[in-house]
Amino acid sequence: MAGTAHASDKDWRNASNIGRDLLVAGALALPTVQEDWTGTLQAGGSIGAATLLSLGLKERFPEMRPDGSDRKSFPSSHSATSFAAAASLHNRYGWKVGVPAQLVAAFVGLARVKADKHHWYDVVAGAAIGEASGFLITTRRDTDVRILPWGDSKGGGVAMAIRF
């Protein structure tokens, strides 16, 4: 008789590590292969900023992981790093590259919850950090479209300029 397949916590952890590593490698390799050195630098900056911010927040807000292994649950640095790489690809090269990368990043977040390493809100916080990092640090390669975040003492927003 065939039984149902069940992924262990270790399988989910391995899957999240592989997904994160593939996204980081892709975000750095794609612009490098195209000799888009600005893109490589921006992707590295986005990923580095998200990773450092998430690791710093883990120290500031020591929350127990669901599996009880340590107090470094909030926020998910796997999610922050993955979403930074995906957002960097999306912002730099458009939706055809960005949507698949975003789906892989979402899988990484899901896998971290399934591995019992994070609560859902740890993943959401990590995703927000990564998305912000990727979209604020990375610029669009296509110079005909610019997305510019802005802010002042009364609010903020995003402006988009298109050259025809």
Rank of each mutant, 00 (worst) to 15 (best):
D70T: 09
T81I: 00
A50F: 12
K58S: 01
P62E: 14
A80D: 08
S82Q: 15
P62V: 01
S46P: 05
R71S: 07
A50R: 13
R65G: 07
L53I: 15
P66S: 14
Y93T: 05
S88N: 02
R92I: 01
K72M: 06
N91Y: 03
E63K: 05
S88E: 02
S69A: 02
G98H: 08
E63S: 01
G56K: 07
S76K: 14
G98Y: 14
M64A: 02
S76W: 11
F61V: 15
N91H: 14
V97Y: 07
R92Y: 02
F61K: 07
F74P: 01
F83D: 06
H78N: 00
H90A: 14
G98T: 13
Y93K: 07
P66L: 09
S46K: 13
S73H: 05
T81G: 02
L53P: 08
P66Q: 12
S88H: 01
L89R: 04
G98R: 10
E63C: 01
A80I: 06
S82M: 11
K72T: 09
I47Q: 08
K72L: 05
P66T: 11
A50E: 10
S88P: 00
G48Y: 08
G48V: 10
G94E: 06
R92H: 03
E59K: 15
Y93F: 15
S54E: 08
H78I: 00
N91R: 15
G68R: 02
H78Y: 00
K72D: 15
F61G: 05
A80W: 03
V97A: 04
S73Q: 10
T81A: 10
A84V: 08
T51F: 01
I47E: 06
M64R: 13
A49K: 10
L53R: 04
L52R: 08
S77E: 05
G94R: 06
G98E: 10
K96N: 06
R71D: 10
W95Q: 15
I47N: 04
Y93Q: 07
D67E: 15
D67P: 14
P62R: 05
S46G: 11
L55E: 15
L55I: 01
R60A: 00
F61N: 06
A84K: 08
T81Q: 07
L89T: 03
E63Q: 06
N91L: 00
R60L: 10
I47M: 06
F74M: 04
K58Y: 10
A86S: 15
T51V: 00
S54T: 11
A85N: 10
I47P: 04
W95C: 11
F74V: 03
G48W: 07
H90W: 12
D67A: 11
G94N: 07
I47A: 07
R92Q: 06
G94T: 12
S77W: 03
A50Y: 04
S88T: 00
G56I: 10
K72G: 09
E63I: 03
L53M: 12
G48F: 07
A80G: 09
N91V: 00
G68Y: 01
K58N: 10
L89S: 02
I47V: 12
V97W: 13
A50P: 12
A50N: 14
F74Q: 02
A49D: 07
H78M: 00
R92D: 03
F74S: 02
K96F: 04
A50Q: 14
G94F: 11
K58P: 04
G48S: 12
S76G: 12
A80Y: 03
L52F: 13
R71H: 11
Y93I: 09
A84H: 14
L55V: 04
E59W: 15
G68V: 00
